[in-house]
């Protein structure tokens, strides 16, 4: 299984990277492949490619700000706050693993 994630927070200096770290750590424990794009004050790091997104079985958006999710149209996706991603990482990954994420349909994609 492969997961891609995006993390972001209002100031972009702490929560973004905490959520990143927790997602990577928890995914490794579950032997799930993961790539996490951080959308912080430094800018975008580890940017997801179209190929990453295409190959991903599930998408986790751990964000406290609104992000453009067009590129995730028709992907199985879950949106959570960074705090939730930090605190409830295991259960979020388990949900992804069980294929319980709903399919995201972007209203701007026709």
């Amino acid at each position: 299984m492969k997961i891609v994630a995006v993390t972001a927070c209002p100031t972009g200096i702490a929560h973004t990277y905490m959520a990143e770290e927790k997602l990577i750590e928890a995914a490794q424990k579950k032997k799930i492949e993961i790539k996490v794009e951080t959308n912080g004050a430094i800018g975008i790091l580890n940017e997801l490619s179209l190929k990453d997104i295409k190959e991903a079985d599930a998408v986790i958006i751990a964000s406290d700000i609104s992000l453009d999710l067009k590129r995730f149209h028709q992907k199985k996706l879950k949106i959570v706050s960074t705090t939730k991603a930090i605190r409830e990482t295991e259960s979020i990954l388990e949900e992804a693993f069980q294929d319980l994420f709903p399919i995201y349909l972007d209203k701007d994609v026709t």
Partner: peptide, 18 residues
Amino acid sequence: EGSNAHLKILAELSRKLM
């Protein structure tokens, strides 16, 4: 106007805190 270098230090600290 924080420099990227400083922001990277804080990002690293945030990761360590986990």
